[in-house]
Design a protein around this nucleic acid. Structure first.
Lengths: 406, 406
DNA sequence: TTTGTTTGTACGCTTTACTAACAAAATGAC
DNA sequence: GTCATTTTGTTAGTAAAGCGTACAAACAAA
């Protein structure tokens, strides 16, 4: 079964094509790469409808097992309107009735609703690892059903692009439900249209990966930055709040920012690219970028591994190396935490590096270099999503972009 | 004429009270202290109407002298709808017809429209100066009509509050049109309801200044942080784009952030409070906050004046002191610029300090410590709004909050 | 059995912006 | 001068969206 076959075999009940698709076309929330909420755009009643559709779906997505009346109470919409919207969703197959409430109370028993767990599946792909591309088939709740990898073996350019397609192809073949879309978390600078403006390690420049994948698979595709995907995953599946910065330590050092629940992209789509910010004033090691003392020279995984090995050979405690790295991370973060009044920082990367001294030194440095009373309980912790974080974040991009749900 | 008198004498044509007021109640843009665009809120057709009202007004506010047909082309709404909305505004006195277009072209001549310059006036107040409160009466375009000041003379607490009321009273008396509202830019931490959570220099803690002023004057009042007000002024009246950070050097060091056109408030409403972020790793001067090397110890106006005087006496070049300060500002900003991918930084403060060496050292440090290609043409410049910046920003808060215009 | 409660639906209404059509007023070709 | 063309702004009617009211169904408790 090819991907195009999957798409053609999509059940399209009445109401689906009437609205074009079941997808969000003009939402006030969610992934929103088109920045739909900037002014200079008129709003029609049908946009309100689209918004309220997402609202109903989002409510059910987060709570699960609600009745129409529950949703009405929770959203502020009337039962009549909720019934109407839910009816649409049921005819589209996105919501199913799962029986009656068992509550012992007077009144007609409520009909419980649920998002149809087998309505759609999603393919999420993580291109951030330097040795392999990792992908997964996920259900609508973001659970991983199948995993696949493709060894990169030093491929760059078109060869690397072909491996992305190959990986996606494998996962699409595995799908047992219609595909909601494909999400891709790529390293480097990615614009809001899914064009990879620059990904040095993969040899990509102005690569319109999103358009290529759309034309190949015929399903919605969203390509975004890996750290941005990660921060979305942490927001949806972790315990994160609306103001958060996620630091991703890997081949390089990247970050994703969520401010008041909205991802930050930056004026040149390079928000979070802190790897080549110089930290410290007494020299530092030379960096591939030409400067010296960049954050990456302190914190990238290859550099840290090398430093740990050197320390081992020189008889220096590894903790000292990690602590030093954490201190420098803390110095760089202090200004950012202060400026943004962040309440939460999440670290992602190999546990052998994150555990212990590095984390402790980072938080200690942050405490001593910022105004604690402003950010109250600033928390710094490691992600609980492990190595799946980018794949699951890529799925969130699709869920959010296509259904307005996250 | 008292303020309450002004309010009572407001002309309230038909349509005004029908919609409650002419004011924005649920807008998707503008000042938006209530974060209306977060999810979990339903959208009704009437909300679309409110949005489109603001859209029409905003279009006219920015271009001036447009016909109904022009507005229709610019907004995408139909001429019919625009006529309807404009009709409302005319009956409310907010828009006036100013004659016919002189264009030589076939077709019926266009009736030109303009926002009624005398429909409303605004009071803007700046509490950020340590020696006096400054206020102004502004017209609807943000031009200053009258200025007044009240010497602070060391007043704090209730005494300082009384002086705010006194200053506002004077300005309200001077108004010759109905008052759209009063905007206040206060130092310290101010939450989204206009409660001054903390303003050490004025001795204010959890002071609900906004509510006090509303109950005293009976008109809409918006109290916000001074640096946030400044960044709004720079956005509306300066040449600033949507991604900007404004650094305000005064008694302390504060900043306002505009990201993608939206002000950032922070998880504890303390975004931009960078004064007590430690910069540099070799000690630094002790700060009132207990730490050493805070940004304020390098850049606050009193500290810099003292350092300049000391340099003068010791025969050291003043430029060296200013350059040193700029370098430290650049070090702190580098991490922020990198993380947010900012394209524009604006400095505000006494010209004797900003001119020359400080600005040059800051930009030079930023260039050498960040990845230039990511932020392309990062610009750093001084504001052109001078000492009026906070007052005019306070007016923008009112314009944006009440009319959805900026 | 009666009463009260809760759910989900049917019907009609208001609001909103749209399309279609048209009158008014100008230019320009003849 | 006359007439076609163009542009503006308005009138009339239509479709979509959500609301309020009313009501039947289904259950618990007295």
């Amino acid at each position: 079964m090819t991907a195009a076959g999957v798409q053609r075999s999509l059940p399209q009940p009445a109401g689906f094509s009437a609205r074009g698709t079941a997808f969000v076309e003009n939402s006030y929330q969610g992934y929103n790469p088109g920045r739909a909420l900037r002014p200079s755009a008129k709003v029609l009643p049908e946009h309100a409808r689209t918004h309220n559709r997402s609202l109903v779906l989002q409510t059910l997505y987060r709570s699960g097992q609600l009745s129409r009346a529950d949703i009405a109470r929770s959203t502020g919409l009337t039962r009549v309107t909720v019934s109407d919207l839910v009816g649409e969703f049921i005819s589209e197959g996105l919501i199913v009735e799962t029986g009656q409430s068992e509550d012992i109370r007077p009144g007609k028993p409520a009909t419980l609703l649920e998002i149809n767990p087998s309505a759609f599946q999603i393919v999420g792909i993580d291109l951030s690892d330097s040795s392999q591309f990792r992908g997964a088939l996920l259900d609508i709740d973001g659970n991983i059903i199948e995993r696949r990898e493709v060894e990169l073996s030093g491929s760059t350019g078109t060869e690397a692009t072909a491996k992305v397609v190959k990986l996606a192809d494998e996962l699409v073949e595995l799908s047992t439900s219609p595909l909601l879309g494909i999400g891709v978390g790529s390293p480097g600078i990615v614009d809001l249209n899914g064009v990879v403006l620059s990904a040095p390690n993969l040899g990509w420049t102005n690569l319109d990966l999103q358009a290529q994948l759309i034309s190949h698979f015929g399903v919605p595709v969203i390509v975004g930055n890996d750290a941005n995907a990660a921060v979305l995953a942490e927001h949806s599946f972790g315990q994160a709040h609306g103001d958060m910065m996620l630091i991703k330590l890997g081949h390089g050092v990247g970050a994703g920012l969520l401010l008041d629940g909205v991802p930050l992209y930056g004026s040149r789509f390079a928000a979070g690219e802190i790897g080549h910010v110089v930290v410290g004033t007494h020299g530092g090691l030379p960096c591939v970028c030409g400067k010296a003392g960049c954050l990456e020279t302190w914190l990238s995984v290859p550099r840290l591994d090398a430093a740990l090995k050197a320390a081992d050979e020189a008889g220096i405690a590894k903790a000292e190396v990690l602590s030093d790295a954490g201190t420098h991370l803390g110095i760089a973060l202090a200004a950012i935490v202060g400026a943004l009044n962040l309440s939460e920082i999440v670290l992602s990367g190999p546990t052998r590096i994150l555990d212990g001294p590095l984390e402790e030194a980072t938080i200690e440095t942050l405490r001593s270099r910022t105004m604690a009373e402003f950010h109250g309980n600033l928390t710094l912790r490691k992600t609980t999503l492990g190595e799946d974080i980018v794949m699951r974040g890529a799925a969130v991009m699709v869920l959010s972009g296509q259904l307005g749900v996250s």
